[in-house]
């Protein structure tokens, strides 16, 4: 068994990808698993950063690879394979954000109330003397704000790409990024005693 254990090297887009893709396209299950092993880490991390909950991220990971298996025959290789997978993952993660909010919200009023509550919780935390580290500050951002700052500043998507992926405008993406920077900065500072 050659492909049972593939090292995790998420950033490496290599010739071995091409070979695996060709084999997976022909229905080779082991090749598909190898592709999964190569890319699961990055997909999961991305999904966790956007969706926050581990169980949601696992679902996104699964949905991404189901979609990948379905669409692999149409992958032409014009762009990078890693970029292609990542795009599928972002789409799935954003879709999950939308649907989660709808499912959670029995009515509009409830959704707004729970949002205000979480905003309130955020402020309480920020005001308290416990210093928020970046990890928890990121988690306390509203869903789309968190998604935008992650996609833009870490994953390197442009505002135009984020607008397209999320179905919103470029100015929406820009304002979310600024808001995220503003909030992250103030929560990181709040522990320092000067606000």
């Amino acid at each position: 068994m050659v492909f049972t254990r593939v090292k995790r090297q998420p950033n490496v887009v290599s010739a071995s990808d091409d070979l695996l893709i060709a084999r997976a396209k022909r229905g080779d299950g082991e090749a598909l698993e190898s592709l999964y092993r190569l890319h699961e880490g990055r997909v999961y991390n991305l999904a966790r950063r956007i969706c926050r909950k581990p169980e949601d991220a696992e679902e996104v990971l699964q949905e991404t690879f189901v979609e990948l298996a379905r669409s692999l025959p149409s992958f032409r290789g014009d762009g990078s394979f890693a970029g292609w997978i990542r795009r599928i993952a972002v789409t799935k993660a954003l879709m999950r954000l939308r649907h989660d909010r709808l499912r959670a919200a029995d009515s509009l009023e409830d959704a707004t109330a729970s949002d205000l509550q979480s905003a309130h919780h955020f402020h309480e935390q920020a005001r308290g003397n416990a210093r928020l580290d970046l990890e928890s500050a990121l988690n306390s951002l509203p869903a789309m704000t968190r998604a935008v700052v992650w996609l833009h500043d870490v994953e390197g998507y442009t505002h135009e790409e984020i607008a397209e992926l999320s179905g919103r405008s470029v100015s929406f993406s820009k304002s979310r990024l600024a808001r995220a920077h503003d909030r992250l900065r103030s929560s990181l500072r709040s522990g320092g005693g000067n606000s």
Partner: peptide
């Protein structure tokens, strides 16, 4: 912010 998030959810639907 939360209102825009709700709008995003409705648009998704």
């Amino acid at each position: 912010l939360p209102l825009e998030d709700d709008l995003f959810a409705i648009d998704g639907e």
